[in-house]
Amino acid sequence: MHYKRAKGILSAKNRMNIYRGCTHGCIYCDSRSEIYNMDHEFEDVEVKENALELLKKAIHSKKEKCIIGTGAMTDPYLPLEKELEYVRKSLKLIDRYGFGFTCITKSDLVLRDLDLLKSINNKSRAVVQMTMTTYDEELCRILEPNVSTTFERFKALKKLNEENIPTVVWMTPILPFINDNKDNIKGIVEYCSEANVYGIICFEMGLTLREGNREHFYSKLDEHFPGIKEKYIRTYGDSYVLPSKRNSQLMKLFKRKTRENGILNDSDMIFEYLNKFPKKDIQAKLF
């Protein structure tokens, strides 16, 4: 871990990354790609030491309240967050000034901040987005070794639902020749149904590989799945998009199972929900 002063914190779409780099160890992580120009070792997490100062300044400059999001590049609930509490302190600012919040995570550490999530959600909206790729626990520990297992994430989703915090699941990536099978898709959707998630984002069955993450992914395939790397190379070459050969049948299964369980599967509608700031104060006055 190392500190660095940043020039800004919020993107044009009101997204932020307090940390840069990750220690979760997911073998397929796109954030390792060279395109992001990370000038330090990926596991040597960079902490934006002035993030809270920048966030407060950005919030004060906003003409309208919005949903502030985090987690698109780096999971906000890294192990170091337990001690640093930069995310928790950010939530306090977001709560104090009446903004909304959403995050993408694989960690049940998010439950630590349940009090703030509830307070934010009572005023505007707080949505927890949880990535779930692998129903099988043993396989999950190989693909995503240093983070909460899928079952632990499922329990976190259930707890969030019990506390009336809306949730969304990202079911991606689904790795060809590894977890692109019916049992995996069914298992994840069943977890989502029991946890009463609002929606599941799944564009297609497959993954993307670029320079940087491709080399790391292939090294992990050699370590854990001998012979699979060669199968990837024969099938996909140097392609950026690697669709599962079972994409069509698995997407049909995904859409059928989500419809049967009353789970939204339209990504555009889910993104609209995640990005639209609710006018709860106006609604309260009307009713």
Rank of each mutant, 00 (worst) to 15 (best):
T258N: 07
E215M: 10
T235E: 15
K255G: 03
E211G: 05
F203A: 14
N247T: 11
G206W: 11
D183F: 10
M251V: 07
K252V: 06
N196H: 15
H216A: 12
L253D: 02
L253E: 06
S244H: 08
D183A: 13
G262R: 10
G206P: 07
R246A: 09
T235Y: 07
P243V: 11
E211N: 14
I200L: 07
N265F: 14
K186E: 14
G199P: 01
K245E: 14
I200C: 06
V197P: 05
G199H: 05
G206M: 11
S248E: 15
I228D: 03
C192A: 13
E194T: 07
I185Y: 09
Y198A: 01
K257P: 01
D238Q: 13
Q249Y: 11
R256D: 14
G187C: 03
K257Y: 15
K229H: 02
F203I: 11
L221R: 06
N213I: 04
H224Q: 01
N184I: 08
L207P: 01
E204Y: 15
R234H: 07
E260R: 13
N265S: 15
K231R: 15
G199C: 04
L253G: 02
E215W: 10
K182F: 08
L264E: 14
Y236A: 10
Y240C: 04
F203L: 12
I200W: 09
C202Q: 06
N184M: 09
R259I: 08
I233D: 11
I228A: 01
P226F: 06
N184S: 09
S219V: 02
E194Y: 14
K220H: 11
K257F: 14
E230Q: 13
Y232K: 04
L253A: 02
A195P: 05
S239E: 14
L250N: 07
R214L: 00
Y198I: 07
S239V: 09
T208P: 00
C202A: 05
G199E: 02
Y232F: 15
N196I: 00
R214P: 00
R214V: 01
N213Y: 04
A195K: 09
L264D: 06
G187L: 02
K220V: 01
G262Y: 12
G227N: 00
S244G: 05
T235F: 08
G199S: 02
N213P: 01
K255T: 06
E260P: 04
I200Y: 09
H224G: 00
D222E: 12
R259G: 04
L253P: 05
H216K: 12
A195I: 09
K220Y: 11
R246H: 15
G187Y: 04
D266L: 08
I200P: 05
A195T: 08
E215R: 12
G227Q: 00
G206Q: 12
H216Q: 08
